[in-house]
């Protein structure tokens, strides 16, 4: 390798080093995850399971009791919705994520390649609520 070529090589290395420095923001390249909010808020089979549970409990009972069960079902569904942000946070913390976005938002801002954690969030909610009995009147 001639001296001139070696000099060029050094300059190129310096350029690369420069690029590495400008790539310092890579440290703040974000870990972004996505979830399907619509599915988690209304489409999960968990909601259907809660409805089925309520329907079964309503069979052969008087109307006052039926309304109580109906109320218990509504309450359980709102409990799931209340637990949703916590479940998302739990998954985000475990993944050391910076941001969790709804799929639609992620698509809009060009981050649709981010990992989707809808299933993980659903798993948490299912484990938390699927085995709980409906407790009318409480």
């Amino acid at each position: 390798m001639s001296v001139r070529r070696s000099g060029r090589f050094c300059r190129c290395l310096a350029l690369l080093a420069g690029l590495a420095t400008t790539a310092a923001p890579a440290a703040d390249a974000l870990v972004v995850l996505t979830v399907d909010v619509e599915y988690l808020e209304s489409g999960m089979p968990l909601y259907a399971a809660i409805a089925t549970q309520a329907e079964r409990a309503q069979q052969g009972v008087e109307s006052t009791r039926r309304s109580e069960i109906e109320l218990a079902r509504d309450l359980r569904q709102s409990e799931v919705l209340t637990a949703l942000p916590e479940a998302i946070s739990e998954v985000a913390l475990a993944a050391n994520a910076d941001l969790v976005l709804d799929r639609e938002v992620a698509q809009r801002v060009g981050a649709s390649a981010a990992d989707d954690v809808t299933e993980e969030v659903e798993r948490i909610l299912v484990s938390q609520f699927s085995q709980l009995p409906l407790e009318p009147g409480t």
């Binding site: 942000p85 998302i88 976005l101 938002v105």
Partner: peptide, 9 residues
């Protein structure tokens, strides 16, 4: 518009 943001993000 976000579902979660790390507090020190």
């Amino acid at each position: 518009e976000t579902q979660y943001v790390r507090p020190d993000c």
